[in-house]
């Protein structure tokens, strides 16, 4: 039973991380949105599995919310934004694809190294997957730092959120539902605020290139 759960968690977490890595080599916005959708569905799967095996019925709710909000609503909003500036690609990131992948690998390794004491002392069947969540958090941060287009950064932020949710689900079998709901609302609001900003940036600079914002400095 635990072995199955452990393997399922590992599989789900790996999927979540791999969807995250897609951001590093694809250049087109629809691909990012698809990756995010897939990641959210995988995350919902992990939540559902944890709810089933860990006997935490609250996690079903979390899984449902994840599916609706991050699997459907936010991707739809993203697509609408994407249609509006769909032609813009992530052309020249600060770090090229090859180096990015190398860095991502290093960051996942770093995640493993940091999480070692936790994994060593934990008794949870999900313990082996915890470093993957940490890896996803670090990789998402890396994406936000090195990519120039606002949409890429938003997707990076959302994946960072997913990484944190994954860490919470794996490490503690889910934080209380009320907190989880708060986090969802937070993410949604953050997303909406960013959306407004992206429109404003687009209006002001005729581009979504965040690098242009340095022109605001006087």
């Amino acid at each position: 039973m635990d072995a199955t759960f452990s393997q399922l968690a590992m599989l789900g977490s790996s999927l979540v991380l791999i969807f995250g890595l897609i951001l590093l080599w694809r250049r087109r916005v629809p691909a990012y949105i698809n990756a995010f959708t897939g990641q959210s569905i995988a995350l919902a799967g992990v939540a559902g599995a944890t709810g089933y095996f860990g006997n935490e019925p609250e996690l079903y709710w979390v899984a449902a919310f994840l599916l609706v909000l991050k699997g459907a609503v936010i991707p739809a909003l993203l697509r609408r934004m994407g249609r509006r500036f769909g032609t813009e690609r992530e052309l020249d990131p600060y770090v090229n694809t090859a180096t990015s992948l190398l860095m991502a690998g290093l960051l996942v390794l770093f995640g493993y190294a940091v999480m070692r004491p936790l994994v060593a002392t934990s008794q949870l069947p999900t313990r082996a997957s915890i470093p993957l969540a940490m890896g996803l958090i670090l990789v998402s941060l890396f994406v936000i730092v090195t990519r120039k287009k606002a949409l890429t950064q938003i997707v990076g932020f959302l994946m960072l959120e997913n990484g944190i949710a994954l860490l919470a689900i794996l490490g503690t079998y889910g934080i209380p539902l009320i907190v989880e709901l708060g986090v969802f609302l937070d993410a949604l609001l953050g997303f909406l605020v960013m959306q407004v900003f992206v429109y404003r940036i687009q209006e002001t600079f005729q581009t979504m290139d965040i690098g242009q914002l340095s022109r605001l400095r006087h």
Binding site: F110, L141, I144
Partner: peptide, 22 residues
């Protein structure tokens, strides 16, 4: 004035904290 630089500061600070904590 570069947003990416600020984000990089935050990321580096996080990594440094993780290293220190570990």
């Amino acid at each position: 004035g570069s947003l990416h630089l600020y984000l990089a500061y935050m990321t580096i600070a996080l990594l440094a904290l993780l290293v220190v904590a570990r």
